[in-house]
Design a protein around this nucleic acid. Structure first.
Length: 284
DNA sequence: TGCCAGGCCAAAT
DNA sequence: ATTTGGCATGGC
């Protein structure tokens, strides 16, 4: 995508584009040199959007302002999230370092599929797999560098081996099986919206390749459940350092929900990103 | 080289 | 109910 000539200026407060796109919740954003400084291209389903931030001005492809506002969750009450941050030095450092990071509103299938490909993979490699799947099976989009994320139906008509050839390893079986379950209608993703979080999580965990951690990623990043806390190896180390008592991942998840409150998932993302960027943990 | 990565699953205790 | 081992791949 060439940066579009027609850009609309949006006024934004408490927003940081680079942190939001780069904190490990989406895996496809492409950085581009723009007409007025560097920017990013993202795809929201089949809608290509160019974004470029200069202070409290966000430049957005004209005609796509409403999609951008929703995708970037510019309506989330970050001051309320900040007020709920713990006061220990590590948490406050994470807040300072990540201020303006927002939890995106991701397309549901893309989010589910990419996190099925995530177990025992580093963020950079999840991105590589995601781009490979888009390149091989996704629909081209006019004006976009990258293809749309392939639908469940499209992946269901490929094969486990074809997915394996995209570097998925043992995750190929899970992604293929889940794609088939959704394509044939035996699992209805649209039913998640109406369910309380615990029921939605239980339902998601019925899908191949979806355990509690991946389910919590989907709930947080695509289902607006901002209290859902994915506990990966990084979060386990962070939360274990905050809680002296030796704990299982599930205990740490509940601990974080009690400690952090209704925006526990949001706070989790700040702690996760900060720990990864600085390779540091809270003092035990 | 060896170790680790935004885990999941089934088998064994 | 809880713990353990296997699973593919790539980066440092």
């Amino acid at each position: 995508m060439r940066p579009p000539k027609d850009l609309t200026e949006l006024s934004v407060q408490e927003f940081d584009l680079e942190r939001t796109l780069g904190c490990g919740q989406i895996f496809h954003a492409m950085s581009l040199p723009g007409p007025s400084g560097p920017g990013w291209q993202v795809l929201v389903d089949h809608e290509p959007i160019f974004l470029c931030q200069r202070g409290e001005i966000l430049l957005v492809t004209a005609g796509h302002e409403a999609t951008a506002r929703n995708y970037l969750a510019l309506d989330h009450p970050l001051e309320t999230v900040y007020a709920a941050f713990p006061t220990d030095p590590f948490s406050q450092a994470a807040l300072t370092a990540c201020r303006g990071l927002r939890i995106l509103r991701q397309p549901l299938w893309e989010c589910l599929a990419t996190f099925i490909t995530s177990p025992m993979k580093q963020v950079a490699h999840i991105r590589q797999i995601s781009l490979h799947l888009r390149e091989r099976f996704g629909c081209p989009v006019r004006g976009s560098l990258i293809n749309a994320y392939p639908s469940a139906t499209r992946l269901a008509e490929t094969s486990e081996d074809a997915l394996r050839a995209c570097g998925l390893g043992f995750r190929a079986r899970s992604l293929f099986a889940t794609a088939k379950a959704i394509a044939c209608g035996s699992f209805d993703l649209t039913a998640l919206d109406a369910l309380p979080t615990d029921k939605a999580r239980t339902l998601l965990c019925e899908l191949p390749g979806v355990g509690r951690k991946v389910a919590n990623c989907v709930l947080l990043f695509a289902c607006e459940r901002l209290d859902a806390v994915p506990v990966d190896v990084w979060m386990a180390r962070i939360l274990q350092a905050m809680r002296k008592k030796k704990s299982t991942p599930l205990e740490l998840e509940r601990f974080s929900r009690r400690r952090f409150g209704a925006y526990a998932g949001y706070i989790q993302q700040y702690l996760f990103h900060h720990a990864r960027m600085t390779k540091s943990l809270p003092k035990p």
